[in-house]
Amino acid sequence: MSKGDLREGRVARLLVGGPPFIFLLIFFVGPSLIMILTSFRFPGEFGGLAPIAAPAASAESEHGFTPEAYQFFFSDLLYGEIFFKSFAMAAATTFICLILAYPLAVLIARSEKRFRNLLVLLVVLPFASNFLIRIYAWMIILGPESALSQFINAILGVFGIGPVTLLFSPFAVLVGMVYVHLPFMVLPLYTNLEKHDPALLNAAQDLGANGWQRFWQITWPLSLPGVFSGSALVFIPVLGMFAVPDILGGTGDILIGNLIKDQFLGTRDWPFGSALSIMLTLAVLSVAALATWLARPATGQQG
């Protein structure tokens, strides 16, 4: 390669990579830094932020930088509790998604090649519909006048148990979370399972392994990378979700996302909202790091 080629390459690289780089530097990195900065400021008297420099007229008003927002987080057990509840909700959602997605992914991976794309499309299709509509659908199904609610209450009535309300409960939130995130579990699982060599299962069968043994000793261990990446794809968005608890949950069912939303659109405490967002980011990063480490391809393993 001549010198001219090299320079041309560098120019092309700048022309092609430059614009998206600059755009994201301004509108992704910039806002992230501003959020970190905001978390160390004082809240304004009427919401928003107090000025960094003290205004001449009111020398007593708070200004400058402070770790107050973080101290506030750790001063009240309530916030730690909401973080814990969010993690529990994310774990429960991930677990149920895994149970629902696994047989489906196995079925798709083992079906005839020409049906596979169609079966995958059928999983993805409902998720092309509007996000709010998918949550709203459960408002209808779990509502007090719905056939499901009346059916359940009729059965409970036989045993003399009072009517239960399904909507606006942690149960409704969990159902909504599972419904919204299910394909994120199916797709990575399917991608992994599709690569398995059926000869392995046949060999195991020839050696006398029953269906249960074949699953636990071959399919499951080989599918672990898919399980871990699917779990991360479900766990992470659930951790930050506010719309599902907002629509399907009761007042006591709020998660981190709702807490953050309130700081910006309710009480308008920006520094605390930013601090909560930073804590959420740290939680997400640790989950992502853990999943990447767990899903790393083991040496000497196929697939």
Binding site: F27, F28, I236, G257, I260, S277, V284
Partner: peptide, 24 residues
Amino acid sequence: LVFTPVAMPEILLGVSLLLFFLQV
């Protein structure tokens, strides 16, 4: 820069952009 916004919870992007638009 390209793939992180896809992977992180949307609320984080929403909040940080809100602060950026209003403050900067």
